[in-house]
Amino acid sequence: MYVHVYNRTVTPFDFVISLALVSVAAGVLGSLIGLGGGVVIVPVLTLLYGVDIRLAIGASIVSVIATSSGAAAAYVRERMTNLRVGMFLEIATVTGALSGAYLTTLLPTRFLFAFFGLVLAYSSFTTFKRRHAAQPLAVSADRIANYFDLHGSYYDPAEEQEIPYKVTGTKLGLFLMYVAGLVSALLGIGSGALKVPAMDGAMRLPMKVSSATSNFMIGVTAAASAGVYFVRGQIDPVIAAPVAIGVLVGATVGARVLGRVASKTVRLVFVVVLVIISLEMLQKGLVP
């Protein structure tokens, strides 16, 4: 199961180089669909390299922050990110992340995995059903969105036009973001997996804006639990170094891709990854 190259010892150097290459791919994928690199990093570290799950989750937090900052630098400049929506919804994600880190889990972790596995399976189903919907809202009666002026517009290079949109469903959005923060702190994964459907589905932001804004937010959500992971000794420098550098390179590349591909493609890639994550979670929750 573990990596062996021609029966030769895999040295720390081999480990660092190979993990950095995997992390580049994780960064590209994570920045494209707004989920962060953890989706790829955790299974690769635990299954391929046989790394302890606690250290893998610490590396995942680092990869999420790297994807977020690496890609958001470009998305904010290109105005793909809705800064106001992102910063507004961060109220809920950081509160969720902070409460999650100290919540003595009343419910067993296995139940949480099974429950969120089902939630993500459902949201991948609804995202798939919505794959052709591209028409953004023209009017919004949402009082919170109007008060904070969360509406926006972005230039879509694939469609070669400026696309204005209105935001709705902020209350449901805030609730889902709180849950996303909670899950991220409790399980170490899945924060972007709930953020993108919350914005794309409940709040009616365009798919690319949802992905870019989720990307912008996941770094702050992860940073809110990074302190705890650091003190607990879950951030191993030998794992974190190649992950951080690889993911940063990947995210910089990925950020150039998002604008050019069609929204429908972004949604489909997102659905595929979401199905995989939900299966992973269900497996952790149901299989003893």
């Binding site: 030769r8 720390p12 480990f15 390299y49 046989g50 250290l55 650091f230 000794g233 191993d236």
Partner: peptide, 17 residues
Amino acid sequence: GGVSYKVLTSGATQFPH
């Protein structure tokens, strides 16, 4: 080579935290 990466990436590895 001679040292496996596992020395540096196991649950018992010591590093600054």
